[in-house]
Design a protein around this nucleic acid. Structure first.
Lengths: 225, 225
DNA sequence: ATTAAAACTGAAGATTTGCTGAAGAACGCA
DNA sequence: TGCGTTCTTCAGCAAATCTTCAGTTTTAAT
């Protein structure tokens, strides 16, 4: 799961990123309005944590642009206690949740997880695709009710596939989601090839059909037949 | 076993915490509504002791929110004798027990233990998992009916494993439950490694199988096979 | 059919994570 | 206070995973 942390204070930004990275999220951070708007326009995230007060532009404007961009990301606003009006405005502009500073990191983590669950799993903990079942909070995968052990990258890959089932995914989009933007994936898709190969092998061995279809020149599509 | 004591009067709070800590509970305390709601949202407890009268908000509202949060914690309400209506309302809102001030600490301890027993042990005193048997009130463990001596951390760890059997537990979740929130576990899981190692060794020596499965990059799962 | 690009594969290093035993520190009890 | 137990720290080793790479197969277009 990929997050964007928009927060200008470096130490807070770092502690948020460290904490969430430790909990298996892939985090990217932005510290200015310009930085943030660029990342939001270029990449896709599962959830965005947005500090309303930014040095070079108002966070509400940023929020508006995110929403205008027709992005479906979940958004959590953080703000100081005396910026209550901004908070209310944020919710009206379509933020999914808010948090007042100072807050505790576990609480932020709980809310992120709740938003992601709401968005991708319709409130359930289980993701189903034919004979494959993913228990997301438990990070456990079963095929025909038999446990299947996946490595972290394999798990992330399968999760991304199932959430985006029946859609053609470019290799760059997948790579971006699994490794973030600091990775040099322009002319090297060997990572992906290897992990797709390993995931396919494990799924087949577990008795699932090969739902990972290669789309020549583009990427993959996860679907039946 | 991890408890949260919500009580605004410092001396009473401290004496409750001291008494229960002495009886091997891991206690955290909150003295205000805001403080309490935050802890409840971030952490997980086995039982919550809640004083209905709080300075900055009504305890009943807090109780309602705990229940709304879909938490499964047991809850004991404490209140002054003249707040009988609140007490009744509390039970109706889903509190598991109540106590009127002033009360004796041993009585509180008895009720906490009863709630935990009801919740985790379905009313029994024994927790069973294959050849392992835990007598919770007696803090005694047997494997194939032969006594097994565990240290406190080992005992707490095994108890947490068995209560959460078949679930993937992150190292952070385990650490939080065994050491509380004041511990700096971000990049140091050596505690856990050592205690898991010692617990495994003792269980194996006693003739039990190794039910503690390591989940690479995440934590552990306690289950058969 | 030929060809060049793209995709796949197995196996090798490199890296990260987990395990271990032993030593030092803290604790509880007499 | 002193003693034995338990808890924490640490450094070296082992294992799992990730990345790299060279060689092979597949694909689409000529």
């Amino acid at each position: 799961m990929k997050l964007l942390i928009i927060e200008d204070e470096p130490s807070l930004n770092k502690s948020i990123v460290d904490y969430l990275t430790d909990r298996q999220y892939l985090c990217e951070s932005a510290s200015t309005y310009a930085d943030a708007i660029e990342k939001v326009e270029c990449y896709q995230y599962d959830c965005i944590v947005l500090d309303i007060m930014l040095p070079d532009g108002n966070g509400l404007k940023l929020l508006q642009q995110i929403k205008a961009n027709n992005k479906t990301e979940g958004i959590i606003i953080i703000s100081a206690r005396n910026e209550l009006d901004d908070k209310v405005a944020g919710i009206e502009l379509g933020a999914d949740d808010y948090l007042t500073k100072p807050f505790h990191l576990p609480e932020l983590a709980v809310r992120i997880s709740a938003i992601i669950r709401r968005k991708n799993l319709q409130g359930s903990n289980l993701l189903l695709f034919e004979e494959i079942q993913m228990d997301v909070p438990g990070k456990a995968v079963t095929v025909n009710n038999k446990a299947l052990l996946l490595t972290r990258k394999e798990y992330d890959l399968l999760l991304y596939f199932i959430i985006n089932k029946n859609r053609v995914l470019s290799k760059n989009a997948i790579a971006e989601h699994l490794w973030g933007d600091d990775m040099d994936m322009v002319d090297n898709h060997d990572f992906l090839y290897t992990h797709v190969k390993n995931l396919r092998k494990k799924l087949l061995q577990a008795g699932a059909k090969d739902y990972i279809q290669s789309i020549y020149g583009i990427g993959y599509k996860f679907s039946i037949a």
